[in-house]
């Protein structure tokens, strides 16, 4: 029933004239006819004064054809990487004779809700840890396996497997307590105008979301959909890979994936999405 309604809605939208330079749309994202995504939510309290009252998933800023690719796992190329990572999950690697499953059993059970709260504080190491850092810590410290390159396909795939178990759950990273200092640093980076073009994240994604920069429809730069399968480069992209690309495009010297700067930025940007559903792996341009 729901599906029929959705199909009708999609058909109606396709029949409508092509939108030019419009803001975000009002479509509803339901995956596989069952996972209802919160793609618009009230902005978290810390965003007061930013001019953004409603936070929105980047899904709303894409064409209907691209949106549709995320509505059914058979059409979502990102899910192929989830399947591959599921095999890796059960494969013994490293000197300790362990697989992920040795400690975590079924990802579908043990990883539920995990994506939603990363990056988060690591009590033992006394640092903010991203999901990628945790995956590599498991590999090197518990499995005796080699670390994945921070923004590589195997890393993105494992992140996708873990994110997929939280789809539909609200992003909920902590910003107070021990993470506060890192969060503040991330915020400072968000508002710093980098490179020869002197562009901050905020210039495009806070002040001009919904506008067009040449043929690109600017979103709010939310990270709830990561890792993201991009049609542009036909691969699964990590948050840090995307940050790096954005900073490069300001004619700046970028920060390296996994660097303290991008970890801080990831925490801050993730906190701007608190309340939006985890969508990863999502599909974008």
């Amino acid at each position: 029933m729901k599906r029929t309604a959705m199909t009708a809605l999609v058909a109606a939208l396709i029949a409508a004239p092509v939108l030019v330079a419009a803001g975000p749309d009002d479509d509803t994202l339901v995956v596989n006819g069952e996972i209802e995504m919160t793609t618009k939510a009230p902005a978290p309290a810390h965003m007061e004064g930013t001019g953004i009252d409603t936070i929105m998933s980047g899904w709303h800023f894409r064409e209907d054809e691209t949106q549709a690719l995320q509505m059914d796992d058979f059409d979502n190329t990102g899910m192929i990487f989830v399947e591959q990572a599921q095999e890796v999950w059960n494969t013994v690697e490293g000197t300790e004779g362990k697989s992920c499953a040795s400690c975590h059993d079924e990802a579908s059970e043990s990883m539920k809700g995990v994506r939603a709260v990363y990056p988060k504080w690591d009590e033992d190491k006394e640092e903010v840890k991203t999901l990628a850092m945790q995956i590599n810590a498991c590999r090197t410290e518990n499995m005796g396996a080699e670390a994945y390159k921070y923004d590589s396909v195997p890393m993105a795939s494992m992140e996708a497997l873990i994110a997929a178990q939280s789809r539909g759950m609200p992003m909920n990273v902590a910003i107070d307590g021990p993470v506060r200092e890192t969060w503040e640093k991330g915020k400072e980076i968000y508002y710093t105008r980098y490179g020869q073009l002197e562009l901050a994240c905020a210039n495009c994604h806070e002040d001009n979301w919904g506008n067009m920069i040449r043929a690109d429809h600017l979103s709010q730069g939310q990270t709830n959909g990561f890792p993201v399968y991009r049609l542009k480069n036909t691969k699964l992209n990590t948050v840090h890979g995307r940050f790096k690309g954005c900073i490069r495009d300001t004619r700046a010297e970028t920060f390296a994936p996994g660097s303290p700067e991008l970890v801080a930025l990831e925490l801050y940007v993730a906190s701007r999405g608190n309340g939006l559903s985890v969508e990863g792996p999502s599909v974008r341009n």
Partner: peptide, 10 residues
């Protein structure tokens, strides 16, 4: 500039 790069190479 803050962290200027070599054109678009990063």
């Amino acid at each position: 500039f803050t962290r200027p790069g070599n054109a678009y190479t990063g």
